[in-house]
Design a protein around this nucleic acid. Structure first.
Length: 808
RNA sequence: GCAGAUGUGGCGGAACUGGCAGACGCACAGGACUUAAAAUCCUGCGAGGGUUAAACCUCGUGCCGGUUCGAUUCCGGCCAUCUGCACCA
């Protein structure tokens, strides 16, 4: 009879979720395993087919771990604050709480229909006051430890909507929603000092098991560089221009300086500058661009010379011109650079464009290495030798750097300096749908945190989600909420009206899962000690630099104040590739290539969906969706179901399949650990093909096969297991084991090559010695025939791999 | 621009640590079953040459070059595509 996936899947899901089959145990004596997936943002579109890729992968590992005897925590929750809900509210005047509730209900239904073994008793929701109470609590601790501060930062400001915009909402310099021009506007913002943790965020990567490319991305994002800060006096004034450079060795080659348009020196020296109007105009234009646009557009360099002032090279005492250009960013280093056009690509382009002189101070190690300054900058750091550089002449770049830094320090014109590209975290949002920042401003006492017993500071219910005139948060209009008393002196005070970014709630959610209903602490000490750290965290590569870094930062802070027991939150981090539309492009409504998971479950069932997502390609790489291929996975599962037809009795593996069974257990077990799910599925397919060829499978073989397949296709395998008359479900059985000796073949097909080209294969015993192999090879007819008119030069034998004969 | 990744048949992909390139699946073609179709089962399937059929020969893992008995794999240089870039999540 045909397999009715709809009925069977419902049956098992009802059982699992009503009985709480997969809920983590509070028995802290058992060995634990904590698997984590990035909790979804419950968008109005519902689940995306990309979500189940990651969830199925860790579900497979979680199910395997349970069978291996671990107490498994595999939780789920919702990261529900965010921009889409707020924009929807502005447009349709529906409170974000209502849409969020609705969306969460929809997501829950969809996730349950896929049969994930989540612990549904521990669901967290970042918008729940009982949850964000602790997000606020962490913020207050950060503030108390001096890691949260206010500063003025530029934001994208839409001149039409009068609202601060995310970079994503700015398209070609105009607002995505209304099309009005977007400008950079200064705004006082809460910042978190993540830079204080920069070095530790790099160093502690050594202690965790992250994919190498994730570590590299994180390190590059933090962007540590060693160099020097050098002070250039401004001629005929008391002002100095301090620059940061990673190339102090090139100080003799400086031919001009550049300051960022926002550099304060311009204001200070305004009375000396003779072309102030020109500079003001340039600053205005630059203020329209974001940092990103500036570096993106740097093919066409722009800039204006600052007339009336000259800087003095502290080493050569030469007077050099100062320019203003937006290729220098105020947010990195000191906002000013010394330019060495002969040895830096960006400086070179700028100097070429504005016809500024260049001075070569490094040459190639040998005369073969050409340095042609008419064509390009010479940037070979590895082998370069200093020239035209006084006391640095003939040194290598590395030596010259060291010598110059000591010279700078001895003469008090510069210091060695480590710099990071990482910037502090802008933590304020002028938005409604976020956690209120639990701070109060008092004229007398300044910024005062709310007393912890007053948390949570709940988000007030409002009906107008539009921002205020000057881009303040919608909360600013609600004076009855804003006006309060100072917790410190009792005087008049105002609440902070900005809210937290979505990153806040997702920076610590994995801790809450450990003890989600605790109202005394974010989680109990016992729960934290037992479950920490997360053993395996899988998520998108796109979260590598922001979410992952932010949550590591928070965790380290919580470790420092004694809240959590580990320095790092995640022991292991892997990532999955994106699922693209059938046309190879990212799925989007506008492209019409979106696949709805509900349709797939309805047409093919959850098991087929799961197997297909695991089979479609290497887990960590992008893969296009294919309706044809998913059908193939459905066919495979039907073939599994139909194996019942030739099932025979048997308590142990039959001799015919014994090797195959042991090999398969080994292969599937290791493939799951290495996330090579696609090859695990192909192993299952090959096994099924073998059973079909023999038209026979015995009960012992079938049982093991079902156990191995269970994490991938849990519904069908449990159903088949029940039909076998087993009293225990597969989930209650131990993961199959194999005997290494039984995975090894007695005899192998050894390829025989002539000059590296395959000419024959011979059968040799496993691990045959060279003499044995040689004898067998030379007795082979094809080989003797080919050797007729040839001379053997050399013979190469690699045990169990190859026999290569080099002939003339 | 900076950073990370990817490139193998008509398509998705496999290949352990440098050792038979194309496992497994899709599509396609042929056959069995059927009044017929679908489903199912079986067989074939990189390109070119060769053969009644086979054997066999040549080419082939983005491009150019190198190391090696042997390179999809290692090295150097290019090209193309995808992802992220700090207020999307």
């Amino acid at each position: 009879m045909a397999y009715n996936f709809t009925e069977v899947e419902k049956k098992w899901q009802n059982k699992w979720y009503s009985e709480g089959t997969f809920n983590a145990s509070n028995d802290y004596s058992k060995e634990k395993w904590y698997g984590l997936i990035e909790f979804p943002y419950p968008s109005g579109q519902g689940l995306h087919v990309g979500h189940p890729r990651s969830y199925t992968a860790l579900d497979i590992i979680a199910r395997k771990r349970r069978m291996q005897g671990y107490n498994v925590l595999y939780p789920i929750g919702f990261d529900a604050f965010g921009l889409p809900a707020e924009n929807y509210a502005i447009k349709n005047h529906v409170h974000p709480r209502i849409t969020t509730e609705k969306n969460i209900a929809h997501f829950t239904e969809q996730l349950k229909a896929l049969g994930f073994s989540f612990d549904w008793s521990r669901v967290v929701n970042t918008t729940d006051p009982e949850y964000y109470k602790w997000t606020q609590w962490i913020f207050i601790q950060l503030f108390k430890h001096g890691l949260a501060y206010k500063t003025t930062m530029p934001i994208n400001f839409c001149t039409g909507c009068k609202v601060g915009l995310a970079n994503e909402e700015v398209v070609n310099g105009v607002c995505e929603r209304c099309g009005s021009p977007v400008v950079q506007k200064e705004k006082s913002q809460w910042m978190l000092k993540i830079t204080e943790y920069a070095q530790r965020l790099i160093d502690d990567l050594d202690d965790v098991d992250y994919l190498e490319k994730i570590k590299i991305q994180q390190k590059n994002w933090i962007g540590r560089s060693e160099g020097a800060e050098v002070t250039f006096p401004i001629a005929n004034s008391d002002e100095n221009l301090v620059v940061y450079t990673t190339r102090p060795d090139t100080l003799f080659g400086v031919t001009y300086m550049v300051v960022a348009p926002e550099h304060p020196m311009i204001e200070k020296l305004a009375d000396k500058i003779t072309n102030m109007d020109e500079i003001k105009e340039y600053q205005r234009k630059a203020s329209l661009k974001s940092d990103f646009e500036r570096s993106e557009l740097n093919k066409e360099k722009t800039g204006v010379p600052i007339r009336g002032i000259m800087a003095i090279n502290p080493i050569t005492k030469e007077e050099i011109p100062v320019w203003v250009s937006d290729y220098v960013l105020i947010t990195y280093g000191t906002g000013a650079i010394m330019a060495v056009p002969a040895h830096d690509t960006r400086d070179y382009e700028f100097a070429k464009k504005f016809d500024i002189s260049m001075k070569q101070v490094i040459k190639g190690f040998s005369d073969d290495v050409v340095c042609d300054l008419d064509k390009e900058a010479f940037t070979d750091v590895e082998t370069g030798i200093l020239i035209n550089s006084g006391f640095l002449n003939d040194l290598s770049v590395e030596e010259a750097k060291k010598k110059m830094i000591s010279y700078l320090e001895e003469n008090h014109i510069g210091v060695k300096k480590v710099n990071y590209k990482l910037r502090d975290w802008v933590f304020s949002r002028q938005r409604y749908w976020g956690e209120p920042i639990p701070m109060v401003y008092c004229e007398k006492c300044g910024w005062v945190p709310l007393p912890e017993e007053e948390l949570p500071l709940t988000l007030p219910d409002i009906e107008d989600y539009e921002p205020g005139e000057n881009g303040e948060s919608p909360l600013a209009k609600h004076t009855e909420w804003v006006n309060t008393t100072c917790p410190h002196c009792g005087g008049k005070a105002k609440r902070e009206t900005d809210t937290m970014p979505q990153w806040a709630g997702s920076s610590w959610y994995f801790l809450r899962y450990m003890d989600p209903h605790n109202d005394k602490a974010l989680a109990s000490k016992e729960a934290l000690d037992y479950w920490s750290p997360v053993d395996w965290y899988n998520g998108g590569m796109e979260h590598t630099t922001l979410h992952l870094l932010y949550s590591r930062f928070w965790h380290k802070f919580l470790y420092d104040i004694g809240v959590v027991p580990t320095k790092e939150p995640y022991q292991k981090r892997t990532s999955h590739g994106m699922i693209l539309g059938a046309n190879g492009e990212k799925m989007s409504k506008s492209k019409g290539n979106v696949i709805n998971p509900d349709d797939i479950v309805r047409e093919f069932g959850a098991d087929t969906f799961r197997v297909y997502e695991m089979f479609m390609g290497p887990f960590d790489q992008t893969a296009p969706w294919s309706m044809e291929s998913i059908r193939g996975c459905g066919k495979f599962l039907d073939r599994v179901w139909n194996m019942q037809e030739f099932l025979v009795e048997g308590d142990s593996y039959s001799p015919k399949f014994e090797k195959m069974m042991h090999k398969a257990i080994k292969k599937v077990s290791s493939d799951i650990e290495e996330m090579k799910f696609n090859t695990a599925v192909s192993t299952f397919m090959t096994m099924v093909n073998e059973f079909y060829k023999a038209k026979r499978i015995n009960k012992a073989e079938f049982k093991t096969f079902l156990q191995l397949l269970n994490p991938f296709a849990p519904h069908m395998t449990e159903e088949l297991n029940e039909k076998l008359g087993e009293s225990k479900t597969i989930a209650e059985t131990p993961w199959p084991t194999y005997d290494e000796a039984k995975t090894i073949d007695d005899e192998i097909e050894l390829p025989v090559q002539f000059n590296g080209k395959l000419k024959a294969t011979v059968k040799v015993p496993m691990d045959a010695e060279e003499s044995t192999a040689k004898e067998i090879v030379h007795n082979n007819e094809t080989v003797t025939a080919l050797l007729q008119d040839k001379t053997i030069v050399k013979e190469i034998y690699v045990k169990n791999k190859i026999y290569n004969i080099v002939v003339r």
